[in-house]
Design a protein around this nucleic acid. Sequence first.
DNA 1: CGGGCAATGTACCAACCAGTACATTGCCTG
DNA 2: CAGGCAATGTACTGGTTGGTACATTGCCCG
Lengths: 210, 210
Amino acid sequence: MVEPERQRDAVRTRAELLAVATEVFSESGYSGARVDEIAERTRTTKRMIYYYFGGKEGLYLAVLEEAYRGIREAERGLDVGELGPLEAMRRLAETTYDHHVAHQDFIRLVAIENIHRGEHMRRIESLRDLGQPAMSLVDEVLARGRDEGVFRADVEAFDVHLVISAYCVFQVANQYTFGHLFGRDLAAPENAAHLRGLIGDVVVSWLTRR
Amino acid sequence: MVEPERQRDAVRTRAELLAVATEVFSESGYSGARVDEIAERTRTTKRMIYYYFGGKEGLYLAVLEEAYRGIREAERGLDVGELGPLEAMRRLAETTYDHHVAHQDFIRLVAIENIHRGEHMRRIESLRDLGQPAMSLVDEVLARGRDEGVFRADVEAFDVHLVISAYCVFQVANQYTFGHLFGRDLAAPENAAHLRGLIGDVVVSWLTRR
DNA sequence: CGGGCAATGTACCAACCAGTACATTGCCTG
DNA sequence: CAGGCAATGTACTGGTTGGTACATTGCCCG
């Protein structure tokens, strides 16, 4: 049964504002984003931004929180339980790569938030220690590999997660400057397979005990 | 002989504007930066920004060009000729780490430029293929290691440079969000030695032939 | 040493932009 | 079905901000 297209729908209005705001903030940064532009791209008006989110900053906070929530959701879908530690770790790294490439808006929001030294993020309670689940997954695979004697024992999960994140975030976040400096396009489809395999290789050969 | 403090000094005025603008743009981003604030932090007035740089964007372009020029200068100081390929590569990675930690303003400018999809950078002729020198250094060490049989032969200099850059840039560029998500401070001095050694370990164990 | 121009300062403007006062309308509940 | 409130629209504002018109001043060169 399709819902009748109501003229008034608080949920839809709020959701639409949030979706458009995510786009605009991610395109232009916090200061660069225009409240009027966000409203214009919506079926509603600027007035509603103030009604639902209090103001530009409140809207940005909601965008940030929602974006992180979405990422956490996506992370939950990952399961490497049936693989051996070596292949599991490779899968982890390469899936993280895919994941980042598929969520460029989110990476851009994170970059923007870092420009502002994380001052907004710090005020969102639900984001505290949000990284834990992702790191637990790494830790699990790492521990399994250590027990089986295939991984070296002197590396922490945090370090592994850091190396993987750094590589995958950089791909997206710095694609324009890095690409220009070296005359290569990190986002070009023909490079994807190689770049994807690269982080797998790096992590596996780093962790493999010899 | 100390120069007399002249009241008028085109060179000094221009340089001061550029230095302050670098700070302000790096602190607040392109849209967030205020022309008036830049002028206020200077011994001169806003008028001079338009006199020397044409406008806000011209000033930003000059900041970007100058920042990249400074980095290229710094890179030239690096010499790993007397070291064996293994130690040279480690030195390369760890020095890059030091270098990025020491030039956070620059990393922030790069992040800002990426938010704007590199549209300003593309218009600066002197930045075309500026990455070449840095990559040549990596290539040299890599080739030496391959010849001596200590490095694997299936990795390109570009890939190595990418992995190192990604890790080092991430440390600085994402310190706020990553630090908050995991309750760790990437910039804390007590973590520096470990984080520095980490990228050395990763690169060396990745490249080492077994 | 004085004319002329580079360099600088002051005061101002018009557009922009986040935010709001006030009116209105549709939907749900009793 | 009607009354009340959540939800929405319109029109406006005051401060901000990039940019400029016009005046002035100090330095260098002939």
